[in-house]
Computed example of a mutant assay.
Amino acid sequence: MRGFMTDLAPSSSLDIRTEISAAYTAWDSAFNQADAKAVAAAYVPSAKVLPPTHEVISGPAAIENFFAGLFSRGFTDYNLTIIDTGGDDKVVYSTAHWSAKGKGADGAPQTAAGLATHIFERQADSSLKLRLHTFN
């Protein structure tokens, strides 16, 4: 699943921003294809997802199930837009605006949006995987 991973060396904040932008593009693509398994592959095995429901979602199976639930409710057209990035050769972070389209409880189309924080861990091959993902 190389799509979520980048091979750029962490030499500057511009490079980190480029890495995160590539990771976001791949994540958005997997989400918009309703591919819960591919979305879950973007996270380290012990990752946490903290949605606005106050749940703590941990591990690949739970993360995959969480996103599969969103897809079953018709969420698509996901987009992440970077606000800020930073980090070092081991841990990289980003804050972002997010938006998606879905259906409300009544089945009517709705747009959802908010802010997200992402903490990435650099893997042995220099790629990035998510350790923490929280959003409102």
Rank of each mutant, 00 (worst) to 15 (best):
T25M: 10
T25R: 15
T25L: 10
A26W: 06
W27H: 13
W27Y: 15
W27I: 11
D28V: 05
D28C: 09
S29T: 15
F31E: 02
N32W: 06
N32G: 04
D35E: 04
A36N: 01
K37P: 02
V39D: 00
V39P: 01
A40T: 03
A40N: 00
A41K: 12
A42K: 10
Y43P: 03
V44Q: 09
P45I: 07
P45S: 03
S46R: 14
K48P: 01
V49R: 12
V49C: 12
V49M: 09
L50T: 09
P52E: 13
T53V: 06
T53D: 14
H54M: 12
E55A: 13
E55T: 07
V56T: 11
V56E: 10
G59N: 01
P60S: 08
A61I: 14
A61T: 09
A62K: 02
A62Y: 00
I63T: 00
N65W: 09
F66G: 01
F67D: 04
F67L: 01
A68F: 02
A68P: 02
A68G: 03
F71M: 00
S72C: 07
R73E: 06
R73Q: 15
F75H: 08
F75G: 01
F75M: 13
D77S: 07
D77Q: 09
Y78N: 12
Y78E: 08
I82R: 10
I82S: 04
I83Q: 15
D84F: 08
T85N: 10
G86P: 06
G87V: 03
G87P: 02
D88E: 04
D89H: 09
K90R: 14
V91Q: 12
